[in-house]
Each structure stands twice: as structure tokens, then as C-alpha cells.
């Protein structure tokens, strides 16, 4: 399949990236090259093969549903570019 500049624009929007026309052209060519190369996986017979999600073959550990990481609000806010009254501040979303 061709990964063209239109596809790049769509994917970049999904990934919340702003690309210039020049970047779109560059990345379209490069990602298209990578996709052509991974195309070789189509020749593998994967009938009846379950996807491998975890190599450790263990089930996820269950823990009690209690707060274990509380009272570190100041720590959490320390790297926020903008905060006020213990909250993250973002551009206005609702008119």
C-alpha cells in the first residue's frame, strides 16, 4: 500500500503532531519504505497462531483496590509547566 502525504497528514493528526509540507513529504517516503519492507510478513502462515502479548506467560497481578500513592500532589505538580491551586492549567476548552 502507498503511504502518501494524505495518510501522513491523517496519522499525524491522530498522533497530535503538526508537520510542515516538507516534513510530510519526507516522512511519507520514509514510512512508505518501512511499510514495503515489513510487507514480507504477509508470506508467513499465521493460521491458528495466537498473537503473543506477554512473554512472561503470567497473569496480571491483582492488588487490593486501595489508594497507595496518595499525598504526593506537590510532587506531581512539580514538573507541570503551568499549575494553579494544585491543578494542571490548560488552554481554555469551553467557550
Amino acid at each position: 500500500m502507498a503511504f502518501n502525504e494524505e495518510t501522513v497528514a491523517n496519522v499525524a493528526n491522530l498522533a497530535r503532531l503538526n508537520l510542515t509540507d516538507e516534513q510530510k513529504q519526507k516522512f511519507a517516503g520514509e514510512v512508505d519504505g518501512i511499510l514495503n519492507w515489513v510487507e514480507q510478513l504477509q508470506e508467513v502462515n499465521v493460521d491458528g497462531i495466537e498473537p503473543l502479548i506477554s512473554v512472561t506467560e503470567q497473569t496480571e497481578a491483582i492488588r487490593a483496590d486501595v489508594v497507595t500513592d496518595g499525598n504526593i500532589q506537590a510532587d506531581l505538580m512539580k514538573n507541570a509547566p503551568e499549575s494553579a491551586h494544585g491543578f494542571y492549567v490548560v488552554p481554555k476548552m469551553v467557550e
Partner: peptide, 30 residues
């Protein structure tokens, strides 16, 4: 990083997920 995010977002996107991502996970098992 941008190149890999673009590729990763694409292979997870609707319509391509099974052809790329799920297939890769299957071959990973092999």
C-alpha cells in the same frame, strides 16, 4: 521519534490494525 510515532500510530489505526499489528504479534509467537 516522529517517524516511529507515525509508523506506530498507523499500524494501530482502524483498518490496518489486524494486517500489521496483530499479524506481527502472531509472527512474534512463532
Amino acid at each position: 521519534v516522529i517517524r516511529r510515532i507515525l509508523l506506530g500510530t498507523f499500524v494501530l489505526s482502524a483498518g490496518f490494525y489486524d494486517a500489521y499489528y496483530t499479524r506481527a504479534q502472531r509472527v512474534r509467537r512463532l
